[in-house]
């Protein structure tokens, strides 16, 4: 099996400093955060430019060229609801280190993002969701099937280029649903499909010192069930150590005494 794919989540308009840097086209804060994430072991970087209604295409092109130019064609997840911006980003994207990821499609209003990914030979994150959060795994599976069919209709290699997101749920409020999510990851894995998701959502609202612990426990249990990727903060050391250790136990990475340092 391939190594767990860490998608760094820290380039996002939800962070005020990054939002400002995107708006003002200020490379420095963006490059700094990108480097921190890559040094910590991120494979992909998520580039969340928000809805970017005015200048999405131009902004995404700028961000893709900035990041790939400075970090040896680092592979990127293009994260925006602005379709034109994703297309513009892909038009300047270098695939040497991996296909672009379209973040994200779902089984309802955003199903066309699958078509977009297929047309551009990109990977798509497919959220197993319709209108509102799925009530159980039967419903999640139905959404997943809908999206898989859509991918196949457009000629996608669904087992490689569709990464299904079970949608991690917040423990404070939906504690009783956590095992369901983990079971769904197992179902995705048993079908031979790839998976990913915003894992730290599970610890939302918890005290700051608790979150790395809860996220690490969640990633270990999820990896046991076959999760192949997650969108996380790679600068969470405990989390990254857990991921690297799980990759060793799963034989996704060959053990060497220095495995935590590389």
């Amino acid at each position: 099996m391939a190594k767990f794919v860490v998608i760094g989540e820290r380039l996002s308009t939800t962070a005020p400093a990054i939002n400002r840097a995107f708006t003002e086209r200020d490379p420095e804060p963006i490059l700094k955060r990108a480097k921190q994430q890559l040094d910590a072991g991120a494979t992909y970087l998520d580039v969340n430019i928000g809805p970017a209604e005015n200048d999405g295409p131009e902004l995404m092109k700028w961000a893709v060229e900035l990041l790939q130019g400075n970090f040896d064609n680092v592979p990127l997840a293009l994260d925006t609801s602005n379709v034109a911006a994703i297309e513009a980003g892909i038009s300047v994207y270098n695939r040497a280190k991996g296909k672009p990821i379209v973040n994200s499609a779902d089984a309802a209003g955003r199903i066309e993002y699958i078509d977009l990914a297929a047309a551009n030979d990109a990977i798509v994150i497919a959220l197993c969701n319709g209108e509102g959060i799925a009530k159980d795994n039967d419903e999640r599976m139905m959404y997943m099937q809908t999206m898989m069919e859509r991918g196949m209709e457009h000629g996608m290699a669904v087992d490689e280029d569709m990464w299904f997101d079970p949608l991690f749920l917040v423990i404070k409020g939906m504690q009783d649903k956590q095992m369901q999510v983990l079971e769904f990851i197992k179902m995705i894995s048993d079908m031979g499909m790839q998976s990913t998701g915003g894992l730290s959502n599970n610890s939302n609202g918890m005290p700051k010192h608790i979150r790395p612990i809860m996220d690490s426990a969640m990633v270990a249990m999820a990896m046991m069930n076959g999760l192949t990727s997650a969108i996380v903060n790679p600068n969470d050391l405990r989390l990254m150590e857990t991921i690297k250790s799980c990759d060793i136990i799963k034989n996704n990475n060959l053990y060497a005494d220095s495995y935590l340092e590389i």
């Binding site: 060959l254 053990y255 060497a256 220095s258 340092e261």
Partner: peptide, 14 residues
Amino acid sequence: DINLAKQLNVLIGQ
């Protein structure tokens, strides 16, 4: 020794 093969490369790199 696969693990040592890798470790040695890491150490030489370091």
